[in-house]
């Protein structure tokens, strides 16, 4: 799925007269299967951009296209459907539901899937758990998992339903360097395997070598876009 962002602007109302601009006209394209980083200092607009791409926020102006579909013009019900079927999310703090086991957590995105679809997703989930090396943790609750294990479960959750776009907001921000390296490698490998576009917001510049494309934003605007030609897939 190709993602096209056109002149995206977003401002928040701080008070009746004061508006805070978070995005000031972002235009950028992300190709299908591209492993892409969004970097920038805190407050630069990375999370706002991811929220709009994730269909949980609306821009003040501008458009976002998923292939030829303008998602910024869709009603909430359609956006929910897109979130269910097209997008996978990975959060900095994993955001697992504590009352569900690791495997149940990973099934949350296909809560409403029909039986046949569901069986396909569960099969994929089994594969992901095995490849990620957490098969033995399926029945454990989040409180019984380390940070690295929780993020692996979260990645499996984000990928189980074959999303076209995976959004990760500081996915390694809460992990040690060993786990960070493993998680980055894992995400990249799965990105290539599923053909899903990954957009990873990070401020860790040491990770940039992993990405196909790096979009640097500053003060809500694209500062530069860098293509990493030395990428090794998988």
């Amino acid at each position: 799925m190709k993602i096209k962002i056109e002149n995206l602007q977003k401002s928040y109302k701080l008070s009746r007269r004061v508006n805070q601009a978070a995005l000031r006209g972002i235009t950028v394209e992300i190709d299908q299967g591209e492993f892409c980083a969004v970097i920038g200092p805190s407050g630069s607009g990375k999370t706002t951009l991811l929220n709009i791409l994730g269909c949980i926020d609306q821009p003040t102006t501008g458009r976002v296209y998923f292939d030829d579909c303008e998602v910024t013009a869709l009603p909430e019900r359609e956006l929910v459907r897109i979130r269910q079927s097209l997008i996978g999310y990975i959060f900095q703090f994993f955001n697992l539901i504590p009352t569900l086991t690791a495997f149940e957590n990973a099934q949350l995105p296909f809560w409403y899937a029909k039986r046949e679809e569901r069986e396909r997703y569960v099969k994929n989930l089994d594969r992901l758990f095995a490849e990620i090396g957490i098969s033995e943790l399926k029945k454990r609750y989040p409180g019984q998992l380390s940070g690295g294990q929780q993020q692996r479960v979260a990645i499996a959750r984000a990928l189980a339903h074959f999303p076209k776009l995976v959004l990760a907001d500081e996915p390694t921000g809460n992990l040690d360097s060993h786990n960070t390296g493993e998680i980055m490698a894992l995400m990249k490998r799965e990105s290539k395997k599923l053909g899903a576009s990954f957009i990873v917001a990070t401020h860790d510049l040491s990770l940039l070598e992993h990405f196909d494309k790096v979009i640097a934003i500053k003060d809500g605007m694209v500062e530069r876009v860098t293509l990493n030609k030395n990428d090794e897939t998988g």
Binding site: G54, I56, S85, P98, L108, W111
Partner: peptide, 16 residues
């Protein structure tokens, strides 16, 4: 609060 927002982000409907 965070848990419900996560569920909604992952596509769990409001009515659920």
């Amino acid at each position: 609060t965070k848990e419900f927002s996560t569920m909604k982000t992952l596509g769990v409907r409001d009515k659920t």
